[in-house]
Simulated assay, not measured.
Amino acid sequence: MKRWSFGVLLLAYACGAQADVFNVIENKPLSETWLNAGFYSYHFQRDKDLNDSNPGLGAEYRFSTVASATAGRFYNSDRAYSNYLGVYYQPIQMGPLRLGAVVGGFNGYPKMRDGGWFPALIPTVSYEYQRVGVNIAIVPSYKDRLYGALSFQLKLKIFD
């Protein structure tokens, strides 16, 4: 079992100890705008001298209780600038956590399509409390082009 798979199972078990069951979130309209200042990524391949600090600027618009749109720019793990555009879909709740994935596109990774845009599907866990929150992404490795990481994105709600 890969190390990141074990981490996901451990996180799910730890959260499950506080929550009795997984709940499906009812899809209701919502209007919230969140800002973030990039990511911190803990890379699984520690010997690659990758950039763990990924500052940038991004926004997330939560338009329903289960979905939100996101876009932004950040300084990536390969020390180049990347842009992203996507949609979070998180229909499952486990205690205070929302579980799901973000689907979208990224660019700016030199070894992936020569820095051009590529699609991505990334498992995510989110926690939001009043005006602060965090998105945690489990980024899988892809050959020698993209390096896997556990990515943390702090966010601040500016409109609701």
Rank of each mutant, 00 (worst) to 15 (best):
S151V: 00
A149T: 03
L121Q: 03
V125L: 15
M112D: 05
W4E: 12
G100Y: 12
Y142A: 07
E128T: 09
P119M: 07
Q18W: 12
E32W: 10
D47I: 07
Y88M: 08
M94F: 14
A149R: 10
N107Y: 08
A12I: 15
N27T: 15
E26S: 15
M94W: 12
N83E: 11
L30T: 06
Q45S: 02
V139I: 10
D144K: 13
Y127I: 14
P91G: 04
F39D: 01
L50Y: 11
F63E: 02
C15W: 05
V102T: 05
L146H: 10
G86K: 01
Q18T: 11
A19Y: 09
Y147D: 12
S68R: 01
M112E: 03
M112Y: 07
I138P: 11
H43R: 09
G95K: 13
F22S: 14
P29G: 06
E26W: 01
Y88A: 10
V8I: 07
K157E: 08
Q18F: 13
A67K: 03
V8T: 05
M112A: 12
P110Y: 15
Y61I: 13
D114F: 09
Y147Q: 10
L35H: 06
P55D: 03
R3A: 12
L57K: 07
F6C: 15
A17K: 10
D78G: 14
S151C: 02
L121H: 01
A137W: 02
A59F: 11
I92V: 14
L85H: 03
Y61D: 02
G133E: 09
S31I: 00
S82G: 00
D114K: 06
F22W: 13
G56W: 01
D52I: 06
V24R: 15
V66F: 03
Q130G: 08
D20H: 12
N27S: 15
K28W: 09
P96L: 07
A59H: 04
V134T: 02
V102L: 02
A120L: 00
R79L: 07
C15A: 15
